[in-house]
Amino acid sequence: MLYFSLAVIVECVLYLAAAILVNLFLGRIGLRGSSALMVNLKYLGITSWRASIFIIYASGYYYLKRHLEQRELELHRTVEIERLRI
């Protein structure tokens, strides 16, 4: 559990750093608009929220996909057992 929590924290920090770098790059080439990047509590909160929502959806997708694969594997095993009985 400790490693999972640490991995989530590291992932959020990396996402935050990447988001800041992308925003700075877009501002540098003129695609961000006229407003300058302000890294304040609001920006950090919004970006952290976006990262946590992404982690939640990605985890849900992973567990759903894994569950469906295990279900299909159990179905194939059941069919194979029934085939051996015949």
Rank of each mutant, 00 (worst) to 15 (best):
A7S: 12
V10K: 14
L68P: 02
E11S: 13
I56E: 05
I56D: 03
K42R: 07
I53E: 10
I55E: 05
R32K: 14
Y63C: 07
G45M: 02
E72A: 13
L6C: 09
I9W: 12
A36G: 07
L6A: 14
L75A: 13
A17W: 04
R77W: 02
A36T: 08
R32G: 09
E72S: 09
E72Y: 09
G30Q: 02
I20V: 05
E80K: 13
V13I: 09
E82N: 15
R83K: 08
E82I: 11
G30H: 04
L2K: 06
R85P: 00
I29M: 05
G27H: 09
L68D: 11
L16N: 00
H76G: 09
Y15C: 02
A58H: 12
A7G: 06
I55R: 10
I20H: 02
S34I: 02
E82D: 14
M38R: 15
I53T: 09
E74K: 15
L75M: 11
I56L: 12
L75N: 11
H76A: 13
V22L: 14
S59D: 02
S35V: 08
L21Y: 12
E69V: 11
L14Y: 07
R32P: 01
R50E: 11
S48H: 00
R77G: 05
L31E: 03
N23P: 02
L68G: 03
K65Y: 00
Y15I: 02
L44M: 07
S34M: 06
F25Y: 14
Y15Q: 04
S48T: 08
Y63M: 14
Q70C: 09
I55L: 11
N40V: 04
R77C: 04
R28T: 10
A17H: 03
E11F: 10
I20D: 00
I46E: 03
R66G: 01
F4T: 10
V13P: 00
R71H: 04
L21S: 15
A19H: 08
V79P: 00
S35P: 04
E74L: 10
Q70E: 08
S5H: 07
L41E: 08
G27M: 09
L41Y: 02
L68Y: 04
R83C: 01
A7C: 05
I55A: 11
L37N: 00
L6S: 12
N40Q: 01
Q70S: 12
S5W: 09
S52Y: 10
A7M: 03
Y43C: 03
L31T: 10
I81Q: 15
S35I: 06
A19L: 04
V22P: 05
R32H: 11
A17M: 05
Y57C: 11
V39D: 01
